[in-house]
Each structure stands twice: as structure tokens, then as C-alpha cells.
Write a protein that binds this DNA or RNA. Sequence first.
RNA 1: UGGGGCAUAGCCAAGUGGUAAGGCAGCGGAUUUUGAUUCCGCCAUUCCCUGGUUCGAAUCCAGGUGCCCCAGCCA
Length: 564
Amino acid sequence: MTEETPEARDFIRDIVQSDLAAGTHKSVVTRFPPEPNGYLHIGHAKSICLNFGIAQEFGGRCHLRFDDTNPAKEEQEYIDAIKDDVHWLGFDWGKNLHHASDYFEQLYLWAEKLIQDGKAYVDDQTADEIRVTRGTLTEAGTNSPFRTRSIDENLDLFRRMRAGEFPDGARVLRAKIDMASGNINLRDPVMYRILHAPHPRTGTAWKIYPSYDFAHGQSDAIETITHSVCTLEFADHRPLYDWFIEHLPVPSRPRQYEFARLNLTHTVLSKRVLTALVKGGHVAGWDDPRMPTLAGFRRRGVPPEAIRDFIKRVGVAKSNSVVEAGMLDFSIREALNRTAPRRMAVLRPLKVVIENYPEGKTETLEAVNHPDDASLGARQVTFGRELYVEHDDFMENPPKKFFRLSPGQEVRLRYAYFIKCREAIKNAAGEVVELRCTYDPETKGGNAPDGRKVKATLHWVAAADAVDAEVRLYNPLFLSSAPSGGEGFAADLNPQSLEVITNAKLEPAIASGVTFDALSGQPKAVQFERQGYFVCDRGATKSGGPLVFNRTVGLRDSYAKAKD
RNA sequence: UGGGGCAUAGCCAAGUGGUAAGGCAGCGGAUUUUGAUUCCGCCAUUCCCUGGUUCGAAUCCAGGUGCCCCAGCCA
């Protein structure tokens, strides 16, 4: 029934497969290593799907490992949110939850070993001095005056760094590699810095913290990670990754592979900018439905399978690319189309009075819940003399290809009757505020016994039992398709990214039964016919107040497209 | 000659010497009580450029060009 996009093939999976075939590894072990300094976004989803996906497909395992080596930026809130999001996306690390901080003691011991081997030294230079002596992209650096310190002095100093004897920034531990290397990462990289900051997990136990470069590869080795997959910008670090692994008695030999990170049009996937968006109040939070965060997508009603499908379609390669946001919309619609029950909701109501329908009378009509899936059943809708239709579905002076309501034009009200517009009533400002129509009682259910056809079918809601709701429509966060994410990013923000409609009219069956899943409490997707997919926003729906719906994604609209 | 990476359609992306997959978008057309869905069909004589090797090159060789990343005690 559900058609899965064919299994992805990519250069990383090819490597895994041949390593397995060659017996290099008996099973594959990967890891997803987020730093808990922000929420996960769809770019992380690519890494999650890759790492967990490989483990699943090849019968291995994938660890969740927090790369928590910088307590100055990391917070427990982010750790919790990341775990939630990975689970929501559909992956499970089982017992394999790890933290780089679990290995602080081992890492420290290995640092001492490097000192003892004459491959690391304590540098007393200031950060500025280190920067200057590192050289430039085209000129070699120069050796630190402390580079030739004795092993004993290095050991003593390093132990005193750990003991907290020195203030932040006073000294660092550096690997002794090559200040003239063309690869700047090899110019005696910093392994440890002094940081008197409490850590979310280790508290105040440590006064020094390992750098990414010294922590990551060794953590991989400790966990017997076979394939350490990361993004392209770390390719330059691979020689350093290998250098530490080669010079240390680590328990396994992981290999690093790099792929191109995901970029999406009309948004930004940089933690720096996303954090600024939240902290600057440009959005309502990390889970604002306009955010490209997993939390944002979830709140907007995007099902996790849609994100997985999208990631699968995008593929994995090494060339930088920017994927059109429309491709994600496609995956979302495809997932939702299969499962979302249909309902009628009028977003911008225009009152309709059926003049030849008896005053005070109502009747009940049957409407199917899904046109292609009878198992979803049917529900009853009320029809009466006064109705609401979509304001956009009426035009007083329609252009050629406008098939909807206009004076004298007959259309079908879905599941109900044919109606014909007799007159449009306007207010003092000349705006159409009400339509006077007639209906054909012979067309009950929506077909004319005489075989005549109409060119449009409209959704509608009976005034008698319409339920009021607020509906929030979301549009791209940024105006330009490729926002720079630079300093002035705020000027590029789309002022129309959120449209709030406060007077929508829903058929009552929306309020009862299709809003939240009884067991999981998750919002249930519903299609408002001819408009799009929506979910109830529980956070915004206050008890006693009107329901609040978020538009997940609109339906394709070839008419709107043809108009432009 | 700093180091590293990448160039295949509007956007992704296969292809690894045998004559350019697939998806998204777009464009036609059929079906349709959602201008939705579904279904059919079209959409690169050419793979950044220029030479070369070869019966044969997107794939191999040489030389160019363009774009991305790196000078945090961030990851």
C-alpha cells in the first residue's frame, strides 16, 4: 500500500558494503554526534537518517553521542530536546547513549601519554600570540618558544592545569606536529584549554576540557565506531583525526568519511542564525512552525516519514547543493495525502443565502472521509439555508478560466446541491458581503438527473453549526531563495511568513475526533479540502477558546499558477 | 604551485571505457463531486573548457576555468 522510495545508494553505503564484504569489519557501527548547543534542524536529519539508516540497513548499530566538550555553550535543555527529536524522527539508539564527557578521564590519560612520548607540550602563549604564530593560509607558522619544554615540565604543568591552578586562557596543551604544514589543522593544534566552567554532566570536576579534534576520533575509537561520517568542512581535519589515532593505543581504528551538508532554499540552516532568530524574538521559539528545526516541523504537522522520504530523495554526495524547498513540500504532501481524512473548512467566509431553501430547515448529508480509501469511512454534514463559502470562490467579474461562483454561474457544493448565484450584496465600501443564490433540489448529493455538468465543486460550511477557529498559514521565513545569513539577515525576513486568520468556519466534525490521537496525544493531520493539510496546535488552543490550526502545507494549485 | 573538496538539465542525483538512470520543478493530455489525487506522454545529440589517448570518453591523460571549505583556547 505505502510506496517507499527505493533504497538509497550512495558512496558511503558503497564503502560500508565493500568493507563488510572484504571482512574489514564484521559489523558496522556509526554514530550521530550532536553538540548540545541548539535544536536539531533538517540538516541534522540528513546526518541522522544516514547514520541510523546505514546501521539499520547493514544490521549494525548507531550510537547517539553528545559531543559535549564545550560547557560554555552547552545546555541540558538542548540535550533533552535532541533526544526527543531523534526519537520523533523515528530512530532509536537503544543502550547506546554516550557522551564525549564519559571519556574525559581516558582522554586525559592519553594526553599524558602524548606528552610522555614527546608529542605534546604545554604552551604559555596567549591566544593572540598563538594566532599570530600560526602563520597564514600561504605562509608557514613559527614554533612556539615553549615547544621544546622538557617532558617533566610539560607533565607537571598539564597536571596543574587539571588541578585548576591557572586561570582561563593561561595555557593550553598542544600536539607537536608541524608548524609549517600546508594544512593549518596540523600546525600544533590545541588539545586542551583551561575552562573554569561547570559542565552539564561532569559538574565542576574538570578545569580543562579537550578540543573537538582531540575528543572526537578517540571517542569514536572507544565506541568501536567503524565509519565516522561527518560533513565536508571536517575533511581538513581528517589527517589530524588519523594522527591522534595512530599515536595512541586506542581500542579500534575508525575511519572518517565526509559528505555535503544539506541546504534548503528560503531558509537558513546555521545554528548561529537560528539561535539569533529565537533569541531576537523574530520567531516564537525553537519550535515555531516557520523554523527549519525538527521541533518546528513537528509543530507544523509535518510527519516524520515525510522528512525521511525527503532525505532519501535528496541523496548523499560530496558536492555542495541547495535543495528547493518545494521538494520537501512534495514529500510532505505525499505522506499526508494517503492518510489525512478530508474535512471542509472555510478560511475566509462569505455568507450565502439559498433563497428557495425553506427557512429553518436543515438536513444531513453524507460525506466520505477519503476519496481513495473507503476504510476511513464517512461522516454527516449539515446543510441549511445559510452557508459560508470561500471568499476567493466568488468573483463578480470573472476572467475566462474562472469556473467558480459568479453572477448567473452554477456550481456544485460538495456532497450537497448545485447552486446558482443570483445576486451579490455589497456593503457601503463596495465589498461583496453576501451572495443570494438558488439551489436545485433535484441535485441532492451533487449530481443532476438531467446530466448537466458544472465546472467547479466548492467546499462550504452550514452557518447553523459552523465551529469558529483560528487558522495560521505559514510561508517561507526568508524573502530571498538563498538568504546570506549574514549580519543583516533580519532585513531579509519575510513579513508574510505568518498569516493569522481568526474567523475561519469549520464543519463540526473537525472539532470532534480528528484533532489529537487519543493514545499518543500527537496532533492528527487533516486535509481541509481544496486548501491543504492542517493540524491542531494544542499549545495555542486554549480551553474554552477557539481551536487553532496550523497549515502544514498547501495543496498544489494549478489554477493559482496559471493565473500568474 | 598554501592545504583540502567539488563541477552531469531550473533544483537534487546515478553513472567508474561501450554510446546520458531516477526524483523534484516545468510542459502537454486522460480521469476526477478537491483546479487535489491518480494515470499517460514530453523534457541533456551531451556531461565546466581546451587539447590528447582510443574503433569508442561524462568516464583515461595533460593543461586550464569556476565554486566551496580552512588562519577559534567553537564543533
